[in-house]
């Protein structure tokens, strides 16, 4: 098996987090799930993260602010970010915040795999 990338999933919904972990680990990615958006930058640095999958609507926090913070931090601004949203029209806001891609929930797993692959190979 070739070495797979490290992915950080940031979502306060543990079910989604668990599901993404299971789905992505099935494809041999290393996955860390965090329900605390405020620790995101720290988690990226400490775990040598390649890609962050970030929910836009985390209770109390807007995912775009987390994304902006990642981009504004010199230690994290190279990491890939893919945002998830349940809102049909939130895509532009995510891209504007510095995300490399976004997905509208609910998404198909095949699409998830394709997008993750595409973003990592950008």
């Amino acid at each position: 098996m070739i070495k797979k990338n490290k992915i950080l999933v940031v979502d306060d919904d543990a079910i989604i987090g668990g599901m993404l972990k299971a789905v992505l680990e099935f494809k041999n990615y290393k996955v860390i799930v965090s329900g605390k958006p405020e620790n995101t930058e720290e988690n990226i640095i400490n775990n040598n993260i390649d890609l962050v999958i970030l929910d836009k609507l985390i209770s109390g926090v807007d995912g775009t602010d987390v994304c902006t913070a990642i981009r504004n931090n010199a230690a994290t601004n190279n990491v890939k970010v893919m945002m998830m949203t349940a809102l049909h029209n939130a895509g532009p806001a995510c891209i504007e915040a510095g995300a490399d891609a976004f997905m509208t929930k609910p998404f198909d797993m095949e699409i998830l795999y394709k997008n993750v692959e595409a973003v990592l190979n950008q």
């Binding site: 079910i15 299971a22 609507l57 349940a86 929930k105 609910p106 198909d108 797993m109």
Partner: peptide, 21 residues
């Protein structure tokens, strides 16, 4: 929107994972 889509996303994810397995 968020509340409805989130659980179906997980269901879908797990079902598709199982199918893949």
């Amino acid at each position: 929107s968020h509340e409805l889509k989130t659980p179906v996303t997980s269901i879908r994810g797990y079902v598709q994972l199982l199918l893949s397995m």
